[in-house]
Amino acid sequence: MKIPKYPALALLQAGLTIVTLHTPVALAADGKLIATAGLSQIEGSGGGGIVPWATISGYDSRDQISAGAVVTQVDVDDYRLTMLGASLSFYDSLEVSVAQQRFEIKGAGIDIKQNIVGLKYRLYGDVVYSDWPQLSVGMQYKHLEDGDIAAAVGADNNSSGTDFYLAATKVHLGAIAGYNAVWNLTARATKANEMGILGFGGIKNDDYEIMFEASAGILFSRNIAVGIEYRQKPDNLGLGEDNWTDYFISYIPSKDFNLTLAWAELGTIAGAAGQSGLYLSLNGQLW
């Protein structure tokens, strides 16, 4: 497959073509219960904070489309990651996302940029209403703009890689003492080192590996969700890359925007141990 020079633009164009072919369509998406659309995760896909979920981002129902934007910053001891993203969702079925990650090595004046294009397709179910969990498949194509550090730490590929995932998500109404509960389980095939910031594959391993990711949360009201996430990661470079954990609280005042604050424990990154700090994310629905 020939990858266009600007895959994000090509995808957006394709998306807009679908929209114009499908008219009439409701452009003000509100067809889901509040807080059941999920958030946007650190690679731009609809999800929790660090894990892609089966949910299609935005409040579109099967007759609607929606568009959203997100900005996230994770500030740990020696690094700072900023992510800017946008996504389009079609008929609660297909999600197209673009994101840019900017990874700053504090005090070193080094900034690593990575662009990500994500696609997700819902295979089955509705996160609230179906008997079984909502099930989606997705991919994240990652293009590393600055591959020098990746090359220096021994990445096999310092330019691009693609992750593939299968995710299952379910909301249980009134499940825990009357509070709504949500869980997600994701299996991801990946070669990425630190999401791709340090390239793909390495001295220790150069094959796709299956990593498991999970989230669990409770909605204490229609507007507040609290939970935990876990993301298993490969150690292809032999630098002791760690699994990630975060503890989050999300405030969802309306279907228009939400705010998430989390404590992220990212372990060892590029040899620097004990990286933890605050995760802050603002996610808005444009239509």
């Binding site: 409701a26 219960l33 099967r62 003492a177 009357g178 509070y179």
Partner: peptide
């Protein structure tokens, strides 16, 4: 439609809230 159904649910939730039904119930 799915979105009109969910609108109905939103209105029903509002109706319960106005009747002082606790969130968990």
């Amino acid at each position: 439609s799915e979105s009109d159904f969910n609108l109905g649910v939103d209105l029903f939730i509002a109706a319960m809230t106005k009747a002082n039904v606790p969130h968990t119930v």
